[in-house]
Nucleic acid binder design. Structure first.
Ligand SMILES: [Zn+2]
Ligand SMILES: [Zn+2]
Ligand SMILES: [Zn+2]
Ligand SMILES: [Zn+2]
Lengths: 146, 146
DNA sequence: GCTCCTTTTGATATTGATTCTCGTTAGAGT
DNA sequence: ACTCTAACGAGAATCAATATCAAAAGGAGC
């Protein structure tokens, strides 16, 4: 259930970009806001149902990514999952199940995130690469696949 | 240039799995050993040339992954890149250019890797998820895209 | 080298996710 | 309500990847 706060932030962002926040797009955002991790077009379609045709779903995902509202995530062969961008959902990391492929968001306590940030800066500091962000994926077996 | 050591390790692993280490497969391994990061079938084909048809290249990648010699890597929409598995190349992380998409391996000094390991264990310790491995991707602009 | 048997190859067809096309529909502003 | 433009949606097209299957190559034994 999209929080009113997030919804208002998205409204403003889309208005600034002259992109309409239509019914179909609201449905997509709502489905992603309820998920506890990134979801693919097919996974979303299964949840949303017929009300948003696949071709529209794909275009909505592309438009919302372009507007910076959604971020893509890659962890399975041949498909792209999307989630709310971090400025909406907060910085977090992912648990990736190597058995069933599901990806789950995980919040990292401030202290740990701080230490992680330092390590990343140390690593990137030694090479000619301008670090902008980092993504930590923890791979293993989820509760269902234990 | 595949080091003789790595080549011997692969020979043994494939022999154990009753999989032949054929010319085409050697070419693929050699190209990946020379790369400084994961490469897709198309990227490899560009380097290798006509001597290994795409259909064979794809099958070689699948066979070598199945045998545990190669590991897949996902960071770009709609394609899979491969690299030597970590038991061959050593544990490492990746720099991902958000501009051109190239992925580059990066070695992490033991001390940093140790601290990273601790953080990962701390994060995974709090949830019902059996941690097996971790992947840290540092996103930013590569030297070419600066 | 020759035979038999199994694995691999490679040209081609096929699948599956995603994107494109284009006529139709809906939204914001007047 | 009228207009103008953005968005929609059904279907075609694209592109990475996989499946087919007949032909070629390896290996073991002779
Ligand atoms: Zn699982
Ligand atoms: Zn996430
Ligand atoms: Zn770059
Ligand atoms: Zn790597």
């Amino acid at each position: 259930m999209t929080t009113p706060t997030i919804d208002r932030q998205i409204e403003r962002r889309l208005a600034d970009a002259d992109v309409r926040y239509t019914r179909g797009r609201r449905v997509v955002i709502s489905a992603l806001a309820e998920a506890d991790g990134p979801r693919s077009a097919a996974e979303l379609s299964r949840v949303i149902g017929e009300s948003v045709p696949l071709s529209s779903l794909y275009r909505s995902l592309a438009v919302l990514e372009e507007a910076g509202v959604l971020a893509p995530h890659f962890s399975s062969p041949g498909l792209t999952r999307y989630e709310l961008a971090e400025w909406l959902s907060g910085h977090h990391h992912h648990l990736v199940c190597i058995c069933c492929g599901i990806v789950q968001d995980i919040e990292v306590a401030d202290g740990l995130e701080q230490r992680l940030q330092e390590i990343v800066a140390d690593i990137a500091g030694g090479v000619s690469f301008s670090e902008l962000n980092h993504a930590l994926e923890i791979e293993g077996h989820c509760a269902g696949c234990a």
